[in-house]
Amino acid sequence: MISVGIDSGSATTKAVLVIDGQMVTHNIRPTGFDILSAAKNVYEDVLSDAEIDKKDVTGIYATGYGRNSIKFADRAVSEITAHTMGVHHLYPAVNGIIDIGGQDSKIISVNDGKVTDFLMNEKCAAGTGKFLEYTAKALEVPIEELGRLALASKKPASITSMCTVFAESEVISLRARGFKKEDIAAGLIESIARRVAVMVRQVGLKQNVAFVGGVAKNAGIKVFLEKELGVSLYVPPEPQITGALGAALYGISKS
């Protein structure tokens, strides 16, 4: 049984190819404006990577914001269920998930692979990848470097704005007051960690928590989140693809 999961996210599109319940390969591309071609491209990439012909694919399952626009998919599933199934496959003992993506963050409570409760940030960009992307720009630091830079800080600056636009102007005024780059970076990440921690407490996650989504790739954020929450987090080797993996597994469970 060959199943492909496609996660059409706000920033990146991901595909995972699963054969007989095992993940074989994956692909990640920027989503761009044309979400359908991004989805087609990652789909074709995983097929050619695994040397599999289109006609041998049992099913294609879509998740992510663009899930209903991927017309060649057989079925759509929400990211919340998809991430839960993907993470459960990798870490069966996990009972909580923190997913921070390009435009939202989700906190999911899990019991035996099933969603029991979840919470998402409101519609603004606070506590998401977008927040880091914008504020990193004000620091003139590539987004990939932000986490590492923050880890070098001994005295994180205090960033009080939750709003992405206001935080950016807060960064500019800290910069003008002569704060070190690493201290501002640490302040930004601390503010995200605090924001996420509030949601984690609301849902009541305590231990065996996984951290996924594009933002989990940023080394510093995991450290700050762990400090804020007081637990260590499971981060998969490729945290960006648990949604696509889960969609593929969801498809199998439904067919």
Binding site: V77, S78, T81
Partner: peptide, 17 residues
């Protein structure tokens, strides 16, 4: 109507749950 999709996602997940 600006948040129709965001609410839709939460509702989808809630129905699946």
């Amino acid at each position: 109507d600006s948040d129709v999709e965001q609410i839709g996602l939460r509702v989808d997940a809630f129905m699946e749950m």
